[in-house]
Write a protein that binds this DNA or RNA. Structure first.
Lengths: 348, 348
DNA sequence: CTGAAAGCGCTAACAG
DNA sequence: CTGTTAGCGCTTTCAG
């Protein structure tokens, strides 16, 4: 694994066996002090053009790249952010991740990714991990922890919550106006003469499913659509969860004409169950999802669903976090609400 | 934003406004030296049970969490790894990401994620970024850079390549035996009496598409199946790419009876094109994908495809990287090859 | 325009 | 069993 047999240090290609070069090496090579190298590179203090050139040359010859860990310790900023995602196997999230990543990478930030699976314990340990690593900010969609608990863990750190808010904010927020999309969905059902509808929600507790269910109930109530208690299910946000709930619901002696799901993945499971039961959609059963994942228009029947603007959510999170990092902890917390809307396809 | 009005430092709940507590604070509080605190916490040197208890208490009371940046600078390890993913919007990758993340998080590593979009410039800058941040290792699926170029950039760092190898290894590798899955796919076509087949590959160059195309050609040749040059397309790994290539292929005066695609996303685009052209699958056209993304069995017709074991790939990468981190740079490079196989569904 | 020295928060010799 | 000291690699006073 040796390359060329040059006799002394710091020559030739930067090979596998070379030691990492430090600012002191560059300084020595250019015949100046580390201080001057630092300033030549940062531009935070004037340096004579001649020495600047010598330094740049040395940097190049030696292949110097500053050690960001040392820099971070010194300047007390890491140019990194923690992004806690619930479940990356749900196609909704990668879209958010990508948008967050792109928005942050532009500004030189790197993303530390944590997966929480919506569990309180994981949320807490990952948050602490991020804090311990001195990230400059954190983005999280809380599924178990309350905003207050999260704020207590992260201290004064810039924090963006992907979450609807009830009561105190505790952090900047990005949220989607799920209610309007769901109201449109219920109106759509009503327009088709459907008077009885069920809902498959996510796990009980503080998941977005709970709020979506509430919105659904309210919209149905407003239109006089019946939502029997036995038509409500709580399952994990997974295809398996949707299948399981779907089986139960469809086996009911009196089952609803339509079922809305708290997300598309659950809806896919429900469609599996409908197929098992030999039902044909949307005639025997109308199904509406939530999120509009990329594949929603690939499945059969094409899924009627509420568009949850993943990329916009991610971009808004990135913007909000950068703003907070720049402005410091003292300004008032902001809330950005993104619209949702129904897209009519073939399942309802 | 102030909470309770306690008169002096380090009391009460750890609130938003509290300064971060350092090892020295704990030491003072417990009446010992920082060294002892460090050792009490790490266990790397015996500490009397009495002082240990006092320290633990102090840690608890003050809410001490060590500053990992400072620790990293000192011990020269960050317990972080860089994971460079090509395109997280392709559902194949999140599955890999998740497996990598889980395999690494278990051992206390955090993942810095970079998205390269397969571009050489992005690959290089992200790699340098990771190196500058002193990650303990890097996992990358190279799309533009050669293994040698990557090795030159990362120096002696533990490195795992998701990539088939031709010639020198330059790093530990995880690869999939695409050839066997593709051979099975071609046999499947042959069994159905198909004698003419095309292939939609990824971008020209060093993408996995190129190797898959070569395997396809070889397998077809072995069975006497015709693969005309005009039936070969190179497009981006996207649904749009598949659609575009599909339109061209299906508009040909003499088009093939079957088309295999370098990945499932392209196949989805091809199916879009087939639908546009009013063809019914698999009778008028047989389509085979590659990857078996989660949604492959959701689309209509259910996609016949080659299973690319995303989770196993991710898990293998994590294992290989951890092994290399532990064993140091000197052992021989390893190659782990994972099998692929055909799953027959409805599109071919 | 440039350098010396201090210090970010931690760990690990080296002493006792 | 415990403490003192040095130093990871960088930036930034402070002093020329």
């Amino acid at each position: 694994m040796k390359s060329s047999g040059m006799q002394i240090d710091m020559h030739g290609e930067e090979g596998v066996s070379m030691k990492r070069v430090h600012i002191g090496d560059v300084a020595a090579h250019a015949g100046v002090s580390p201080t001057t190298v630092s300033h030549a590179l940062s531009g935070r203090r004037p340096v004579s053009e001649a020495t600047r050139q010598r330094i740049l040359l040395a940097v190049d010859e030696l292949g110097y790249h500053p050690n960001l860990v040392a820099k971070s310790l010194r300047i007390q900023r890491t140019k990194s952010v923690g992004f806690l995602v619930v479940d990356i196997s749900n196609p909704y999230y990668p879209a958010v991740v990508q948008a967050v990543h792109d928005g942050l990478a532009d500004q030189g930030y790197v993303s530390l990714i944590g997966i929480t699976y919506g569990e309180a314990a994981a949320e807490e340990t990952v948050l602490r991990e991020m804090v311990a690593r001195n990230v400059d900010g954190i983005i999280i969609q809380p599924m178990s922890l309350t905003p207050a608990e999260i704020r207590r863990i992260v201290g004064p750190l810039p924090l963006v919550l992907i979450s609807d808010h009830e009561g105190e904010l505790h952090a900047d927020r990005v949220q989607t106006n799920d209610r309007e999309g769901i109201a449109a969905a219920v109106r759509h059902l009503n327009d088709h003469g459907i008077r009885e509808a069920g809902f498959i929600s996510g796990p009980e507790g503080r998941s977005p499913g709970t709020l979506r269910l509430a919105s659904f109930r309210a919209a149905a109530h407003a239109l006089g659509i019946t939502v029997a208690e036995e038509w409500i299910e709580h399952v994990p946000f997974s295809r398996a969860g949707g299948l399981e709930a779907g089986r139960r619901l469809l086996a009911l002696p009196h089952r609803p004409r339509a079922i809305m799901c708290a997300n598309d993945i659950i809806a896919v499971g429900l469609i599996d169950a409908a197929r098992e039961a030999g039902l044909s959609l949307p005639v025997d059963l109308a199904v509406i999802g939530f999120d509009d994942i990329d594949t929603a228009n690939l499945i059969t029947p094409h899924l009627t669903t509420v568009v949850n603007p993943a990329r916009e959510v991610g971009a808004a999170c990135a913007r909000a976090l950068l703003r907070r990092i720049e402005r410091g902890p003292d300004g008032a917390y902001t809330v950005e609400a993104l619209p949702t809307h129904l897209v009519r396809r073939d399942s309802a």
